[in-house]
Design a protein around this nucleic acid. Structure first.
Lengths: 217, 217
DNA sequence: CTGCGGCATGAGCAAAGCTCACATCCTCCA
DNA sequence: TGGAGGATGTGAGCTTTGCTCATGCCGCAG
């Protein structure tokens, strides 16, 4: 798959100069910090501009919207997650037994959310009020789903599901969709529990995935 | 379980007069209509007041906040869902085979979201920006989870999970938690698909639940 | 009829997102 | 080198929206 070009819908003037590019990144970093600390709604664009030492007018030259800031942040996060999963999804992973394979994938994802607490925090608050964010997120999930479906196919999952006829790729992708969309919120939820309960939840999430996959093994 | 008193945290002056109670309900109905039609963020409180033929000052005598309106709406929805599930969760349901039992529960929930499209629409947009809503929703889910755990216990699910020691209630509730929190977003997602794919998704959701429960049967 | 306590009302305040008229800088040709 | 002209930088202030509060009105006790 060719690496699709990053969506820059929310950007107003594409920074040609390197210095401007740095300014944009600096604004993004400051915004991320403030969003995580106080929330998206409680952070004003003027505050971001002031803390980033950028006049409010300049900020709006780079970002069409307050929403655009959050959009770019989420794209950054999505890229990171995809990279991390793609990195792990290699031949080595294929050697593992199904339970260990499932366990690894879930641990990697869970770990990612630990390393980037802003992802969950910002996404949860903004997904509802920023429709474009749903699209970006769906595109990112679609990517994960395609990859996961391919990975599952490599393990021979789903071959025996349709008794007759061919087990169309779409069936596998449907399974991958269900897994991704079920597991992601569960992992987020697990992060809110105290450590002991959290471990039990993660174990239970793995059982959920495993039970589902076992039906089609 | 005793029916817990409805949370009225967001109400400013408890309407003693019947006429005031009617006014509150009328405002809620108008607000629901506007929220579904244009979204929560795009609907101003002044607009609600005008359409409900209530002066803006009076509206704020009944509701402490714009958030309070949405909170009361969601409580209404949660009460309805709980009632519908409680109604179905009777002896008759216990006679069914496990696959049919799972199928019924998921169909009932899915049907509920069809009958009340506002639930999903309003909740999705507001959950992030209204922290109190998360609490209300968690309380409602907790109720569902306790009921589901009891229902599962009645079927003998989970008895064989812990090889040694007692299968503590908490284990069952953890399973119920995982099921509820995994299935709800999936059902919401399924509602956005075209009819054919939607049916396949619902079937897949049932397989997910079934596979999971089968591990502990 | 008169005084009083509380409810009803909507003009207007404060906060936040965003604009736009103006200043400043940078480039390039005479 | 100077200066014209476009591109970029800047922040006062406009608009919208959630919400308040000074004022008016109503119903009842004396």
């Amino acid at each position: 798959m060719a690496s699709r070009p990053t969506r820059v819908s929310g950007i107003r003037r594409k920074p040609q100069q390197a210095s401007s590019q740095e300014r944009v990144n600096h604004i993004l970093d400051v915004a991320e910090e403030l969003f995580v600390a106080q929330g998206f709604g409680a952070t004003s664009t003027n505050e971001i501009a002031k803390k980033a030492q950028v006049p409010i007018g300049s900020l709006y030259q780079f970002f069409s919207d307050k929403k655009a800031i959050v959009l770019l942040l989420m794209e950054r996060y999505n890229r990171l997650l995809h990279e991390r999963l793609a990195l792990a999804d290699n031949a080595e992973l294929m050697q593992l037994s199904l339970p260990e394979y499932v366990s690894r994938l879930i641990d990697i994802t869970s770990r990612f959310f630990d390393d980037h607490p802003g992802y969950h925090a910002i996404f949860m608050e903004t997904q509802g009020s920023v429709p474009e964010l749903r699209e970006t997120e769906d595109a990112a999930d679609a990517q994960l789903i395609v990859d996961l479906a391919a990975s599952l196919a490599g393990r021979g999952i789903g071959d025996g599901k349709n008794q007759e006829s061919s087990p169309s790729t779409t069936d596998l992708e449907l399974m991958a969709l269900v897994l991704v969309k079920a597991i992601t919120p569960l992992i987020w939820l697990s992060r809110l529990q105290e450590p002991e309960k959290r471990l039990r939840m993660v174990a239970e999430i793995k059982r959920l995935a495993l039970g589902y996959l076992s039906l089609s093994a």
